[in-house]
């Protein structure tokens, strides 16, 4: 039987580059593998932890907040992405620059800035408090912190998606009787949807992993990363590991589910 090394022409150059890359692959596999391995050695603790209502609540808060913030990012971000993809105007790059800021600044800094604006007496926090919406140490605060840090993923990915859709497809749709709105809904949106969905997925994952900004704006109600951090500092590795493993498993499952239709097609 012939081995893969005979069928694939492998030159020294590729081998070198692959080995360099293996460093990164190993970094992920060893780190997560070690964690899973240690946990498998200690199943009873894992089971008791995942039954703990505090843990379940923290994970629920993380998942619901990131889902909500992803939907908000979708609702406001997709129209913006479409607008930016289709129009050229003076100052466009300034707007695009502003939209990229959340991805550039340290998360702690973003947390401080958000806190200043959204605390009970902040520019936005104070008026909304009178409407009964409180951000500081409350669920809306978790959402805002996640949204701020992760919406650029939706806008940027959706924008790139829209750019690949020929505007002449919309032209044709309009000549066939579709209004601008219908042409968007029936032609451009479905064609760009894989990109939009991809952006939403990144946004969702980025949201659930947010820690620093949430730590400062909304320590309570404890979301999963906060709880993990708190348990790590108070009880140590063995206690904080099970909830970490659980969080990873949930994220991987959701990621796999979202990719399912794509894998099926292939």
């Amino acid at each position: 039987m012939r081995g893969w090394w005979e069928e694939t022409k492998v030159d020294k150059f590729s081998v070198l580059f692959l080995f360099l890359g293996l460093f990164l692959i190993a970094l992920v596999c060893i780190t997560l593998g070690n964690m899973f391995y240690k946990q498998i050695m200690d199943i009873p603790t894992f089971i008791s932890v995942i039954k703990d209502p505090v843990v379940i609540n923290a994970i629920w808060i993380s998942i619901s907040a990131t889902t909500f913030s992803t939907l908000v990012a979708f609702f406001f971000g997709v129209p913006l992405a479409y607008f930016l993809a289709r129009n050229d105007f003076w100052g466009k790059s300034i707007i695009e620059g502003i939209l990229d800021i959340p991805m550039m600044i340290p998360h702690v800094v973003a947390g401080i800035a958000l806190y200043a604006v959204f605390n009970r007496s902040g520019v936005i926090g104070a008026p909304l408090k009178t409407l009964g919406i409180i951000f500081q140490d409350d669920f809306p605060g978790v959402i805002v912190a996640m949204l701020f840090m992760s919406f650029p993923y939706v806008v940027n990915t959706a924008k790139e998606g829209f750019k690949t859709i020929d505007p002449r497809l919309e032209n044709v749709a309009r000549s066939l009787g579709a209004s601008q709105w219908k042409a968007f809904l029936k032609i451009t949106f479905p064609l760009a949807f894989p990109s939009i969905f991809n952006g939403m997925l990144q946004c969702w994952a980025r949201g659930i992993s947010e820690f620093s900004a949430i730590l400062i704006l909304a320590y309570f109600p404890r979301s999963a990363p906060i709880l993990i951090y708190e348990w790590f500092t108070t009880f140590g590795l063995a206690v904080s590991r099970p909830i970490s493993v659980l969080l990873i498993l949930i994220c991987l499952a959701i990621f796999a589910l979202s990719r399912l239709p794509k894998w099926k097609r292939q």
Partner: peptide, 9 residues
């Protein structure tokens, strides 16, 4: 607008 013109393209 194009959708009101009854023009095939």
């Amino acid at each position: 607008p194009p959708e009101k013109r009854k023009v095939g393209f």
